[in-house]
Computed example of a mutant assay.
Amino acid sequence: MTISLTEAVALVDAALARGRELNFAPLTVVVLDPGGHPVALKREDGSGIMRPEIATGKAWGALGMGLGSREMGERAAKVPHFANALMAASGGRVVPVPGGVLIWKDGKLMGAVGISGDTSDNDEICALAAIAAIGCIGQTGATPPA
Score class of each variant (00 low, 15 high):
Ser90Met: 10
Ala25Val: 02
Thr140Arg: 12
Ala142Val: 13
Met110Pro: 04
Phe82Met: 13
Ala112Ile: 07
Arg20His: 14
Gly35Ala: 09
Trp60Arg: 05
Met72Leu: 15
Ala127Met: 02
Leu5Arg: 11
Leu22Asn: 09
Ala85Thr: 07
Leu41Met: 11
Gly61Pro: 03
Leu5Val: 12
Val9Cys: 09
Ala132Arg: 10
Arg20Ile: 02
Lys105Val: 04
Ala8Lys: 04
Asp118Met: 05
Asn23Gln: 14
Glu74Gly: 14
Thr140Ser: 15
Asp13Glu: 14
Ser4Leu: 11
Ile134Met: 01
Gly73Gln: 01
Gly138Arg: 00
Gly117Ala: 02
Leu67Met: 15
Ser47Lys: 07
Gly141Cys: 11
Trp60Ile: 01
Gly36Asn: 08
Pro98Ala: 08
Gly48Gln: 09
Gly19Leu: 02
Met65Cys: 15
Ala40Lys: 05
Gly35Met: 03
Gly66Ala: 07
Ala59Phe: 10
Ala132Glu: 12
Ala83Pro: 10
Val113Lys: 08
Ala88Tyr: 15
Arg18Lys: 13
Lys108Pro: 01
Pro52Leu: 05
Ala142Leu: 06
Asp13Leu: 12
Gly99Lys: 08
Ala85Arg: 13
Asp33Arg: 05
Ser69Cys: 13
Ala89His: 05
Lys108Trp: 12
Gly64Glu: 07
Ala127Asp: 04
Ile103Asp: 01
Val9His: 14
Arg18Glu: 14
Met87Ile: 15
Ala88Asp: 13
Thr6Arg: 14
Ala112Lys: 02
Val29Gly: 00
Trp104Val: 03
